[in-house]
């Protein structure tokens, strides 16, 4: 397993956000975490990238325990996190945003090559390379946030609600991009409220309810699960 979370809990003050969550991400697949508002999906990702501190339990990445490392160290290990709400740097240009993603990399020629490949994948970003990120549409900002994460050459990509607030046609673009990323062998942990989209894309799925793990299984199986269908797919 590339990433393993073992019985992890996170508290915000005296409020428990997630309890006893165990999950595993294999090499080269898409794992999704679905669930309603406040179920603990975002907190789970934040625990992996170190933004939230794990109170109990452990997180291992590539065989190394990472839950005590600082955020920048975890990024350095190869985990890229596209946070909820995209969080691009509003007053940096598109290109500066992308280069910031490669902050820790010293292999300059490879960074230039990766910049070209991000521009190749997202032609809108190339057109707008000199523009400030805040002047772009929500869909473009989401692409920029994903592009910025790819610039770190991640071994694992965490995506928090990439479809949030986007028009259906843009959501399709994002879905295609996620599949491309998987196709290049970068495993993805996808957090989504759009369970339909998430279960279509993912190989394996976890369902969180009020901070605990309610269900898990291959995405296709969960797609046919009666509880999931009633609670998350609206059928």
């Amino acid at each position: 397993m590339l990433l393993e979370m073992k019985r992890a809990s996170v508290n915000y003050g005296s409020v428990s956000a997630i309890r006893d969550i165990s999950l595993a991400v294999p090499e080269g697949g898409i794992v999704t975490i679905i669930g309603g508002n406040g179920a603990g999906k975002t907190t789970t990702l934040r625990a992996i990238s170190g933004l939230a501190r794990v109170g109990a339990g452990e997180i291992h990445f590539n065989g190394e325990r990472i839950d005590k490392l600082s955020v920048d160290k975890i990024v350095g290990r190869g985990i890229a996190h596209v946070p909820e709400g995209r969080r691009v740097f509003p007053d940096l240009t598109v290109e500066e945003n992308l280069r910031t993603g490669a902050f820790l990399r010293r292999d300059k020629p490879a960074v230039e090559a990766d910049l070209e490949s991000v521009y190749g994948r997202f032609s809108r970003l190339r057109e707008r390379r000199k523009q400030l990120a805040k002047t772009m549409s929500g869909g473009e900002q989401q692409m920029l946030a994903i592009g910025r994460a790819l610039m770190s050459k991640p071994k694992l990509l965490l995506l928090d609600e990439p479809s949030m607030g986007l028009a259906p046609v843009i959501v399709e673009d994002i879905a295609r991009i996620i599949e491309e990323i998987k196709g290049q062998g970068v495993p993805v942990v996808l957090v989504e409220q759009n369970a339909e989209l998430a279960l279509d894309l993912a190989d394996y799925a976890y369902v969180l309810e009020t901070g605990t793990l309610a269900l898990e299984g291959p995405a296709a199986e969960l797609h046919d699960n009666a509880h999931v269908r009633a609670a998350y797919l609206g059928v």
Binding site: L51, S70, H81
Partner: peptide, 16 residues
């Protein structure tokens, strides 16, 4: 400049 604009997002780029 990135950490002045969004410290958490900057940390996620590996900026200490």
């Amino acid at each position: 400049r990135a950490s002045a604009q969004d410290q958490e997002a900057a940390a996620l780029q590996g900026i200490s």
